[in-house]
C-alpha cells in the first residue's frame, strides 16, 4: 500500500511539474514568435488528424490549434524560420487552401505591410 501511495505521489508530482514548466514556456512568448489564424476548409476529424500529424514538423512551427467547428488553423511560429506564406504553402502541400483571418478591428488590405 505504501508503495502504491509513493508511486501515485511521484506520478502526480511529475505531471504537475511538466504542466507548470509548460505553462511557463507558454507565457514566455518572445519577439521571434508570431501568430497567424487561417480560415481553412477542413470539415472531417481525420483531416484534422492528418494536419496534426504533419504540421508540427514544418520548420519553425511552435504551436498549432485546429478548430473544426470554426474551420480555422492557428499557428504560433518562429518568424526567423517561417512565415505566413510558408505556412500557407505547407497547408497547400497537404491539399488545403488557406485564407488569413485578421482579428476584428485590424484593418484589412495589404497597405499596412
Amino acid at each position: 500500500m505504501k508503495n502504491i501511495v509513493k508511486a501515485a505521489a511521484l506520478i502526480f508530482t511529475l505531471l504537475l511539474t511538466f504542466s507548470w514548466a509548460g505553462a511557463q514556456t507558454q507565457e514566455g512568448k518572445n519577439k521571434n514568435e508570431s501568430q497567424v489564424l487561417f480560415s481553412v476548409e477542413i470539415d472531417c476529424a481525420s483531416c484534422k488528424q492528418k494536419l496534426e500529424a504533419k504540421l508540427p514538423f514544418e520548420k519553425g512551427v511552435k504551436d498549432l490549434k485546429i478548430d473544426l467547428e470554426e474551420q480555422t488553423v492557428w499557428f504560433l511560429y518562429d518568424n526567423r524560420k517561417s512565415s505566413k506564406e510558408a505556412l500557407v504553402l505547407a497547408l497547400k502541400k497537404l491539399g488545403y487552401s488557406a485564407k488569413e483571418l485578421k482579428p476584428k478591428g485590424e484593418a484589412t488590405g495589404v497597405e499596412k505591410r
Binding site: 480560415s39 505566413k84 506564406e85 500557407v88 504553402l89 497547400k92 487552401s97 488557406a98 485564407k99 488569413e100 483571418l101 485578421k102 484589412t108 488590405g109 495589404v110
Partner: peptide, 16 residues
C-alpha cells in the same frame, strides 16, 4: 509568387 487579394471591408484571399 505569393499573392494576396483584398478590398477594403472585405476578407482577404491568399494564393501561392
Amino acid at each position: 509568387v505569393s499573392l494576396v487579394a483584398s478590398f477594403i471591408g472585405y476578407t482577404q484571399d491568399t494564393v501561392i
